[in-house]
């Protein structure tokens, strides 16, 4: 997940995710909708990302990042513009996925950190 998100502002939240998901062929459309609903964007499926707050866009980018198979996932400041509740939801979704795939998770942050069960924390 990119720090600058790299979403396409003219495309809706759903289209942004499907653009990646169809390339990877990973999740079903319903599964994507469910994830969006869990991060609080159930009512924003057709809203162009350009009209969303940065926090909402972060959650779209987070869901998009999960729409592919991976052994490691690198999240660059995923919750810099999110409150604790939303960060907790994202943390739970990520944990489920990590346990399911047995994948490694690497998170960077400046200031507010994604709440997670880290094996190691490095301060640079």
């Amino acid at each position: 997940m990119f720090q600058d998100l790299r979403l396409f502002p003219e495309l809706s939240a759903m289209d942004n995710i499907m653009l990646k998901n169809r390339l990877a062929g990973y999740a079903t459309e319903d599964a994507v909708k469910e994830m969006l609903a869990r991060v609080g964007l159930g009512n924003y499926l057709d809203t162009p990302c350009g009209r969303m707050s940065f926090g909402q866009q972060q959650r779209v980018a987070f869901v998009r990042a999960l729409c592919q198979p991976f052994d490691f996932i690198l999240l660059d400041e995923p919750v810099s513009h999110l409150d604790k509740d939303n960060a907790a939801v994202m943390s739970a979704i990520l944990r489920e996925r990590q346990l399911k795939d047995g994948a490694g998770v690497i998170v960077t942050s400046i200031g507010y950190r994604l709440p997670y069960e880290y094996d190691a924390v490095y301060s640079l």
Partner: peptide, 11 residues
């Protein structure tokens, strides 16, 4: 920018 972003997400 769009082209580079598409490339970044795997295209």
């Amino acid at each position: 920018e769009k082209i580079y972003n598409l490339f970044s997400i795997g295209y």
